[in-house]
Every structure is written in structure tokens, then in C-alpha cells.
């Protein structure tokens, strides 16, 4: 039973991280119908920025709490800035180009960012400091759940609530939904669609950065390649849930997280990464609109 719980919570943690990344995919796809291939790289850059900030601050001798807050903020700000810039450089000039062109541009951007970090930093795995403190009350359950796991799940839940609020009730959120429905119409109604797209990239990138920092701290190491597989899995999660739908992204992420966790826990870890793809093929064959998606593909 304990083992089951451990896997269950492990899956929940994984799913939460996927969800944080998947949100960015779903939001961007909702508005410009593009798979932002570089999204996984944003998540990686978030983790790297946090690591660098934390190291510098540790060097400067700040206390633990200040380090956590500043490193996380740096990650969020920088990821958002990267997301914004990528959109301006690689996607905006292609707003009216065929889908194939935009997609290839996105792949190029992803390739560029990975190698940019590889060349400027390192190709090795870097140890990531444990930013999340031990919680005293969790000690008796340490074989089942780690403090970082709890922290990840709670943070994810809070972010989802904030995001739902942003999209449902704020002005920019309404503009985002309008642009997702019909860009031309939104533009005619006086919505600055370019601004909406930028905001979408910024918000999506910021949540991905949070995911990056959390997972890095949880696993304890990062490298330039971490965004690729995580990004693809998160994308699969978004499609599974129904791309364009935010609750769908969360649901899809949790399903994928649990499947991976239970499968590796009970059966074998060899094909852990193959699941996402298998899922993807199956969904696209049987229910291309995803579990919660309404839009006909």
C-alpha cells in the first residue's frame, strides 16, 4: 500500500510538472495554432537561470529564504523574457506563412536555444541546490512523500487557480479567449492581438519556468537537454487533455504522470519515455480532440 501511495504521489508530482509546462503549449496553441517547439527550452532556461542566481546569491551569503525567492523570481522573469523574444523573432514574422514554415522555425529555435545553453554553459549535468526545505511534520512519511513533492503539488494547484482566475475574470484573459476564438474578429473589436499573443507567451513561459525550478530542485540536477523530452511529454499531455483547454492540460498531465509512475514502478522502467508517444498515437487515432477538447480537429 505504501508503495502504491508512493507511486501515486510520484505520479502526481510528475503530472504537476507536466501540467506547468503543458499550460504554455495549450495557451499558445489556443491562440496561434502553433506547437511552440521551443517551449521545453524555456523551461530549461528557467532552471538554468535559477541555478545561476542561486549560486551567485549563495556566494554572496544570503539566507535560504531570500535565495529561494530571488532565484525563482529570476527564473520566471528570464523565462518570460525569452518567451516574449522568441515569439517576436521566430514566429511573428511568420504570422501569415504556411503552418509548415512556422513549425520548422519553431524547431530551429528549439535547436538554437539548446545549443546556446550548451555552448555558453556546459554539456554536463549540473548539481542543483535543494531549494525546498525539509518539513518537520513530513518526517514520519519520508518513505512515501518527499517535501519537494508536496511543495510541487501545492504550488501547481495554486498556479492553476491563479491562471484560471486570470483567464476567466481579467480583461487580458477575456481578450485571450476572444483571440483564441477568432483572431480577425477580435482585432476588429479593438483587441490588440499582438499584445495578447505576447502576454500568452509571457504567461506560458513563466509557468514553465516555475516547473523548471521545481523539477530541478526535486531531481537535483539539470542539463541543457532537459527541456526536450519534458517538453514533448507535456505537449502530449496537452493533446491528451484536449489542446486549447486548460483543465484538459492538467487532466492530461496527471494521467500521463500516473501512467508513467505506475508503469515504471510495477513493470519496467525501460520504456518510460515511450509511453507519452504511444498515448499520443492512440489519442490522435481515437479521439483527436482530446478528453476535454471540444474543437474538431
Amino acid at each position: 500500500m505504501d508503495y502504491f501511495l508512493e507511486l501515486f504521489l510520484g505520479g502526481l508530482t510528475r503530472g504537476s510538472i507536466y501540467a506547468l509546462i503543458a499550460l504554455g503549449y495549450t495557451m499558445v496553441y489556443g491562440i496561434i495554432q502553433l506547437i511552440n517547439f521551443a517551449h521545453g527550452e524555456i523551461y530549461m532556461i528557467g532552471a538554468f537561470t535559477a541555478l545561476i542566481a542561486a549560486s551567485v546569491l549563495t556566494f554572496a551569503g544570503l539566507n535560504q529564504l531570500a535565495i529561494i525567492v530571488i532565484a525563482a523570481l529570476a527564473a520566471i522573469i528570464y523565462s518570460a523574457a525569452y518567451g516574449y523574444t522568441i515569439e517576436k523573432i521566430a514566429y511573428k514574422p511568420l504570422r501569415n506563412a504556411p503552418r509548415l514554415s512556422v513549425l520548422i522555425s519553431a524547431i530551429g529555435m528549439s535547436l538554437f536555444l539548446q545549443n546556446y545553453v550548451l555552448l555558453a554553459q556546459t554539456s554536463n549535468f549540473l548539481p542543483f541546490p535543494e531549494l525546498i526545505p525539509e518539513f518537520e511534520f513530513l518526517k514520519p512519511y519520508s518513505h512515501i512523500i518527499r517535501p519537494s513533492e508536496l511543495f510541487i503539488c501545492i504550488t501547481t494547484a495554486v498556479i492553476m487557480l491563479l491562471l484560471t482566475f486570470l483567464i476567466k475574470f481579467t480583461k487580458i484573459g477575456k481578450a485571450m479567449r476572444a483571440a483564441a476564438q477568432d483572431k480577425t474578429m477580435a482585432m476588429l473589436l479593438g483587441i490588440d492581438v499582438n499584445l495578447v499573443i505576447s502576454v500568452t507567451f509571457i504567461v506560458g513561459s513563466a509557468t514553465a519556468a516555475i516547473g523548471g525550478v521545481l523539477i530541478a530542485s526535486h531531481i537535483g540536477q539539470i542539463n541543457f537537454y532537459m527541456g526536450f523530452i519534458a517538453g514533448i511529454k507535456a505537449f502530449v499531455a496537452a493533446v491528451l487533455g484536449g489542446i486549447g483547454s486548460i483543465p484538459g492540460a492538467v487532466l492530461g498531465s496527471l494521467i500521463l504522470g500516473w501512467t508513467e509512475s505506475f508503469f515504471t514502478g510495477y513493470i519496467s522502467s525501460d520504456y518510460e519515455d515511450a509511453f507519452a508517444f504511444l498515448f499520443l498515437v492512440l489519442i490522435l487515432i481515437f479521439r483527436p480532440s482530446g478528453i476535454l477538447g471540444k474543437k474538431e480537429y
Binding site: L103, Y271, L278, L280, V281, L284, Y297
Partner: peptide, 27 residues
Amino acid sequence: PVLRLKGDYLAIVTLGFGEIVRLILEN
């Protein structure tokens, strides 16, 4: 299986297929 797909979906599915083949060869 991918007959109905075009564009981004096809790209991702074929990418996934490539990775599955590699994983099989590895494992």
C-alpha cells in the same frame, strides 16, 4: 494511423515514432 494528421500533429507523432524505435533498439 497518421492518415488523418497533418502539420504539427504529424510532426510530433512521427517524432514520437522515431523515439520509440530508438528506445526499442536500446532496450
